[in-house]
Design a protein around this nucleic acid. Structure first.
Length: 152
RNA sequence: CAGCUGCGCCGGGUGAUCGCCGCCGGUGACGGUUCGCCGCCGCCGGGGGAGGAAAGUCCGAGCUCCAUAGGGCAAGGGUGCCGGGUAACGCCCGGUGGGGGUGACCCCAAGGAAAGUGCCACAGAGAGCAAACCACCACGCGUCGCGUGGGCCCAUCUUCGGAUGGACCUGCGCGGGGCGAGGAAAGGGUGAAAGGGUGCGGUAAGAGCGCACCGGGCGGCUGGUAACAGUCGUCGCACGGUAAACCCCACCCGGAGCAAGACCGAACAGGGAUUCGGCCGAAAGGCCGAGAGGCGGCCCGCCUUCGUUCCCGGGUAGCGUCGCUCGAGCCGCGUGGUAACGCGCGGCCUAGAUGAAUGAUCACCUCUGCGCAGGCGGGCAACCGCGGCGCGGACAGAACUCGGCUUACAGGCCAGUCUGCGAC
RNA sequence: UCGGGGAUCGUCUAACGGUAGGACGCAGGAUUCUGGUUCCUGCUAUUGGGGUUCGAAUCCCUAUCCCCGAA
């Protein structure tokens, strides 16, 4: 089953040492996601912005945010988490069916390929209007392009 | 066979890998504990996880809070043939009337215009107690022409009786045109609409003026629960359209909405009440009345306050909790009803998220459309059957829950009926 | 998710149920050596589909799109 998943080993050739080394776990529980509007706004307003063909990626370092959230004591596990992510697909992209599909694909892309992104950051992935027509492979390619830019 | 109509139904399937959200069972660490357990973070196993429209938010309800929701009046809004169904409805079923279609069948916001008001542009004579342009008709007064009779005068001829011709006056008839005062509402013309329709009689010409049939009003009878239909009598016909114009009549409607609302609640910081009189009491205080305040129109009415160091909380954060899915529920059988639907019995539990799960990536199969290649079999051929490759297959995502309506939709299944053609 | 409001030339806006008007703009012409100004002429619209009415931008139903408000 692992040898059937084609794109993964080939991606490892590019920058797979980070991916394979850290994440063989492809799960995405709630503690690894952004859940509050305030968290989204913090990343989008004070973070850095990276463009791709179908995507817009905001990033923000976790410790920069630590001072605002150290009041909540329940985040012992959250600080241990390497990276958290949130997805934004607005009504410009399409109707509810299209938005949901785009969000699911993005979530799947993140699950399988989030190893290419540096850890210790919060991410917000915003879908552009063209993401509605993009195939899964195109989104993967886009994601890798952005990751290369984020690392710099 | 083709086309139409139409009661209903379905909305791809199987498998692999990796995931997401609840639920149930087991189990490990940590924290709390009233030692029952609870909270939190994990692990293992089991089982569940979008629609016919989940959509638009156009109606009707449940549920929750407000307390003007109790009564009356007013305002505003809605509905509008009749009967039934339903928790209710503007929905559904059956019927009536009207319209369309050869037909099966389809469509209709379908009460009232003799309660009142408004409007009916332009055109047209006239548009609302009707009107008189053209054309028609008899009458009166002029006028012109033709025909005809009488009177008188003149001329010519004369057998002296008269004859012929002309001018003037006058009577009658016919015809043309003018003016006046009328008749008539039939024809022309205008308009969306002109005060019943067709025919015959009648008349100066016409007209329900009279008659027959059709239409209409009123009344009775019959059938029907009713809308209404049929029929008889009567009235010559009065009553134009528009109420998705105001309006009248009948019936219905309190407002907001799960972001309703309830609970827990760190931190922070406070906020409100202060009228008069009477009675009881030693006092604290209690009661009554007025007043004041509140009451998203008004009245009746309802509620609050009436005290002095006491009373009351308000309200935000929260990976908060509940509301939150057992309900006018679904399935099957029987039964009543033309039907919508009702009743009885049995069985079942079937998503509950909250930056928001119910998927992502593939493989194979089924059905089908298009394109390519032109393979195999049958046939003289047109063509038929089987098969290969590629591309494509909709509208659309629960957000408190139901009942409807409306709109979107690839493809497919189908009871019945009708029309046309062919064969028997 | 819920509740309101709206849609008229390319743009901004008028219009009792009775010929859709104005301004800016655009095109053409005149004036000017050229351009601008000015003047004249013209083009261009009732969101789609039904219904009521003799007649609909207006009244009613329905769909589409846009805007606003409610933690």
């Amino acid at each position: 089953m692992t040898l059937r998943r084609g794109p993964e080993p080939s991606a490892g050739g590019v920058d797979g040492d980070v991916a394979v080394a850290r994440d063989n776990d492809e799960r995405l529980p709630k503690s690894h996601r952004l859940r509050k509007r305030r968290e989204f706004l913090a990343v989008q307003n004070r973070g850095r912005k990276h463009h791709a063909k179908h995507l817009l990626v905001f990033t923000r370092a976790l410790d920069a945010e630590g001072d605002t959230r150290d009041a909540t004591p329940s985040d012992v596990t959250a600080t241990a988490v390497a990276r958290r992510v949130g997805f934004t697909v607005s009504s410009k992209v399409g109707n509810a069916v299209v938005r949901n599909r785009v969000k699911r694909r993005l979530r799947d892309v993140w699950r399988r390929h989030c190893g290419v992104m540096p850890s210790g950051l919060d991410y917000v992935l915003v879908a552009k209007r063209t993401a509605a027509e993009a195939t899964y492979d195109a989104l993967v390619q886009d994601f890798r392009d952005v990751a290369r830019r984020v690392k710099r």
